[in-house]
Simulated assay, not measured.
Amino acid sequence: MPINQELRVGIAGLGAVGKTLARRLDDGIFGLRLAAIAVRDPAKAADTVAALKRPVPLVTLAELAEHADIVIECAPAHLVAEIAEPVLRAGKTLIVLSCGALLDRMDLVDLAREHGGQIIVPTGALLGLDAVTAAGEGTIHSVRMITRKPVRGLLGAPYLVDNNIRIEDVVEPIRVFSGSAREAAKGFPANLNVVVALALAGVGPDDTQLEIWADPELTRNTHLIEVDSDAASFSMSIQNIPTENPKTGRITAQSVLAALRKVRSPLRVGT
Rank of each mutant, 00 (worst) to 15 (best):
G138K: 06
I83W: 03
Q209A: 10
E172Y: 00
I212R: 03
A22T: 07
A77V: 03
R220M: 11
G156M: 11
V227C: 04
V109R: 04
M106W: 02
E114L: 06
T252D: 14
H223P: 00
I3F: 12
H67A: 02
P216R: 00
R54E: 11
A12L: 08
L200D: 08
Q209C: 05
I95N: 04
V269S: 04
D41L: 00
C74H: 01
V121M: 07
Q118H: 06
P2H: 08
E226V: 13
R268T: 15
A84S: 13
R33L: 02
G15T: 06
V59Y: 00
A77P: 00
S98Y: 00
E226S: 12
T133Y: 10
I174M: 14
V96R: 03
A90G: 09
A181Y: 02
A184C: 11
G179H: 12
E168S: 09
S229P: 05
V203W: 07
F177R: 06
G187P: 08
V170R: 03
R220L: 12
Q209F: 10
L97G: 12
Q239D: 13
T123K: 12
V161T: 14
E114M: 04
L224R: 10
D47L: 14
T252V: 15
L88E: 10
C74W: 02
A65T: 14
A231K: 14
L94C: 08
P246I: 06
L103N: 06
A185Q: 11
D206C: 01
E217C: 06
D27I: 05
V151D: 01
V87L: 05
R24K: 13
A90M: 05
E82D: 13
R152Q: 09
N245Q: 13
L97V: 11
A135T: 08
G204I: 11
S255T: 11
G179T: 13
V17I: 15
L34C: 09
G124H: 11
A125D: 10
S265C: 09
R152Y: 02
D162V: 00
G138S: 13
G270P: 03
R220F: 08
I167H: 02
E73R: 01
G28M: 06
I225T: 15
E73K: 02
T20I: 14
A35Q: 10
R24I: 04
L192C: 14
L111H: 07
L218V: 10
R8I: 05
E82N: 09
I95S: 07
A135E: 11
R148F: 01
T243D: 12
L210W: 01
L103V: 11
Q254Y: 15
N245A: 14
A197T: 04
G124E: 11
G124P: 08
E66T: 13
D107A: 08
V109Y: 04
R89P: 01
